[in-house]
C-alpha cells in the first residue's frame, strides 16, 4: 500500500511541476509576457480586443499584481479546470476543445500502444526463448524499422497505401463529407476504424521493435537464472516454464519502463496526427502553436502530461500486482 501512496504523491508533485512550468515559461523572457505575446500575434494579423483580454487574463496583464499572487491565481484556475479561452477558435473554452480531441487520441494511440506492447513483448519472449536459432537474425532488422522517424513512416504509408494504391484514406478521423459530426452508429464506428488503420499501423510498426528487443534481451538473461533450471528439473511443461517462470520475470523491466517508452509514443503520435490530419490532441497542439493560441497550447500540455501520468500509474499497478517484492518491500 505504501508503494502506491508513494507513487501517487510523486505524480501529484510532477503535475504541480508541470503546472508551474506552464506558469514560468512565458515569463522567462524579460518584459511583460502579455505584451510580448500580443506583439507576436499582431505580426501575424490583427488582434481582436477579446483576444487581448484572453491573453491578459492568462498572463496576468496587471503589472501591479505580484508574481506570487499571479501564481496562486493561476493554480486556482487550473484546479478549477479553467484553462482559459482559445484564441484560434474563439470563444470556445480550452477545456471543451480538449475534451473533443481527447477520445480520438486515447482511442487511437492508446489502443495501438497496447497492441504494440503485447505483440512486442510476446514476440520478444518467444525469440529470447528460442535463442541460438534462426530467429535471432530477425532482431537486427527490427532496429532498421525502429530508427525510422514516425512521421516519415506515416508519409511513406500514405504514399504507398493511400495515394499510389488507394486502399486507405489519406487522412482525417472520419469521412467529413459523409458524417456531419461524431454519431453513435455502426457505420460511423466502421468509418473510424477505416480511417484509423494507417495511423495505428504507423505507431505499431515504429514502436514494436523496442519492446521486442528489450524483452528478448531480458529473456536471454532470465533463461540462465537458477529458478529456470529448477523448473526444468522439476519436469514442468515447457509452456508453464515459458509463461510463469521465464516471461513473468523477464517482462518486469518492460513494464516498469513502459512509462518512458510511452513518452516516445506520445511524441511520435503528435507528429503523426499532423501527417494524417487526425483530430486528436496532437494535431490540436500544432494548430495551437501555429496560431499562437497559448491558452490552448498550455492547456494541452497539462492534459497530455496528466494522461501520461495516468498511464504510468496504471502500469505501476500492474507491476505491483505481478511482482510481490514491491508490495512487501515498501
Amino acid at each position: 500500500m505504501k508503494y502506491y501512496t508513494r507513487r501517487i504523491v510523486f505524480y501529484v508533485l510532477t503535475l504541480w511541476v508541470a503546472i508551474s512550468l506552464n506558469f514560468l515559461l512565458p515569463r522567462l523572457s524579460p518584459g511583460d509576457p502579455a505584451q510580448i505575446m500580443i506583439d507576436k500575434m499582431s505580426r501575424g494579423g490583427e488582434v481582436t480586443p477579446e483576444q487581448i483580454a484572453t491573453i491578459q487574463r492568462l498572463f496576468g496583464g496587471d503589472s501591479d499584481q505580484s508574481l506570487w499572487d499571479a501564481y496562486v491565481q493561476y493554480l486556482n484556475q487550473v484546479i478549477h479546470w479553467d484553462l482559459g479561452t482559445s484564441v484560434t477558435k474563439f470563444p470556445a473554452p480550452v477545456t471543451e476543445l480538449i475534451s473533443q480531441a481527447l477520445p480520438w487520441t486515447i482511442g487511437l494511440v492508446g489502443l495501438a500502444t497496447v497492441i504494440s506492447f503485447l505483440v512486442g513483448v510476446g514476440a520478444g519472449a518467444i525469440i529470447g526463448w528460442r535463442r541460438g536459432t534462426w530467429v535471432d537474425h530477425i532482431v537486427p532488422s527490427t532496429t532498421l524499422i525502429q530508427s525510422l522517424p514516425y512521421f516519415w513512416l506515416a508519409l511513406l504509408l500514405i504514399y504507398l497505401l493511400a495515394v499510389q494504391n488507394p486502399v486507405f484514406p489519406v487522412g482525417n478521423g472520419y469521412d467529413i463529407r459523409e458524417f456531419g459530426g461524431p454519431e453513435w452508429s455502426w457505420a460511423f464506428v466502421g468509418d473510424v476504424i477505416y480511417h484509423g488503420t494507417l495511423p495505428a499501423l504507423t505507431i505499431v510498426i515504429s514502436s514494436v521493435g523496442g519492446w521486442l528487443l528489450g524483452m528478448r534481451n531480458m529473456m536471454v538473461s532470465t533463461m540462465s537464472e537458477d529458478y529456470i533450471v529448477t523448473a526444468e528439473a522439476k519436469g514442468l511443461r515447457k509452456s508453464r516454464i515459458l509463461m510463469t517462470y521465464a516471461t513473468r520475470n523477464a517482462a518486469l523491466p518492460s513494464i516498469s519502463g513502459f512509462g518512458i517508452t510511452l513518452a516516445f509514443v506520445v511524441a511520435g503520435s503528435i507528429v503523426m496526427e499532423q501527417v494524417f490530419s487526425y483530430p486528436g490532441l496532437g494535431k490540436l497542439m500544432i494548430t495551437a502553436v501555429r496560431g499562437n493560441d497559448y491558452a490552448l497550447m498550455q492547456g494541452l500540455f497539462l492534459v497530455i502530461t496528466l494522461t501520461v501520468l495516468a498511464a504510468n500509474f496504471i502500469m505501476d499497478i500492474v507491476y505491483g500486482f505481478i511482482d510481490p517484492r514491491t508490495r512487501s518491500n515498501a
Binding site: A18, L28, A263, V266, I270, V271, V289
Partner: peptide
C-alpha cells in the same frame, strides 16, 4: 515522466 515533445513545443513556442 513529463512528456518530452510537448514540453519542447511549449518551450520553443515562447
Amino acid at each position: 515522466v513529463i512528456p518530452g515533445l510537448p514540453l519542447v513545443i511549449v518551450i520553443s513556442a515562447f
